[in-house]
């Protein structure tokens, strides 16, 4: 079994191909729709836009309960509306679930605090995009320093540290001593040494497989970061599924719908 904590779809073609390949490879997809209207999302999506995306996430998840975990999309720029949106989604979904925060504002902005307190209450892992671009980050884009501060401020929230900061050396260092930060390997080129660096600094128990599927990555380029890494098979198992399984298991929801994946992939 593999759990992909970071995947996206935005149109029928991506949904069809992604689910077919996920089933073929025994991958449970934590899916988030960033744009239900099939193009790049706006800088500051409105609550209505967010809700439309979550409707599509809900439809994909409810129609594919054997391989999809929904990650509800929230733009913390609208804190009150997003808390209401989250409560509505959590109430309507009885399986494993999580949250994906949009990059409208930084994760350590106080406006995210109310949302993150709800996540702690409902034991929801939070996927937070992070980046450290030498060419300059986008406005509101969370960097590894911001992520570290957020993790320390909300110790009861398990965070998927999106892209591990992109520059893995920044991400790995920023996560040191913050046990609720789980390094997501998804996104970015399959850079040799990426996973070994994360394991060395954070430990294999705090690294998780994510693909950043369709944004614009593929399964195999990101799985190569695990299969190609000079780490033990036990460490690879932790990254591919055991760590994410442990995080979602805190929600006390049965895993039975994923039994096919738990028994192993078709190939």
């Amino acid at each position: 079994m593999i759990i992909d904590v970071h995947s996206h779809v935005k149109n029928d073609h991506e949904i069809t191909v992604s689910l077919r390949k996920a089933r073929r490879h025994g991958i449970i997809l934590c899916i988030n729709v960033l744009n239900a209207f099939d193009n790049y999302p706006p800088t500051l999506p409105t609550p209505e836009f967010i809700s439309a995306c979550n409707d599509l996430t809900f439809n994909v998840a409810s129609g594919n309960t054997d391989c999809v975990i929904p990650m509800w999309y929230l733009n913390p720029y609208h804190p009150q509306e997003m808390q209401a949106e989250l409560l509505r989604r959590v109430k309507a979904w009885d399986g494993h679930q999580g949250v994906k925060l949009w990059t409208g504002i930084k994760a350590n902005d106080p406006r995210t605090d109310g949302i993150l307190r709800l996540c702690a209450e409902h034991k929801l892992p939070v996927l937070q995009h992070t980046y450290m671009a030498v060419t300059g980050n986008m406005p509101g884009e969370t960097n590894p320093f911001d992520m570290r501060e957020t993790g320390l401020r909300h110790p009861d929230v398990p965070f998927f540290f999106g892209h591990s900061g992109s520059d893995m050396e920044y991400g790995a260092k920023a996560a040191q001593g913050v046990p609720n930060l789980f390094m997501d390997i998804g996104g970015g080129d399959a850079t040799n040494g990426y996973t070994e660096t994360l394991v060395e600094h954070a430990g294999a128990g705090r690294v998780v497989y994510g693909s950043d599927l369709n944004a614009p990555r593929s399964f195999m380029s990101q799985l190569a970061k695990v299969y190609g890494a000079a780490i033990s098979d036990e460490e690879k198992d932790l990254i591919l599924w055991r760590n994410a399984y442990g995080i979602f298991s805190r929600q006390n929801v049965a895993w039975s719908q994923f039994d096919r994946h738990r028994e192993g992939a078709a190939d």
């Binding site: 080129d189 399959a190 850079t191 040799n192 990426y194 593929s218 195999m220 380029s221 799985l223 190569a224 970061k225 299969y227 190609g228 890494a229």
Partner: peptide, 9 residues
Amino acid sequence: FYPESAKLS
């Protein structure tokens, strides 16, 4: 890059 990326792809 990890050479596995292109091979697996």
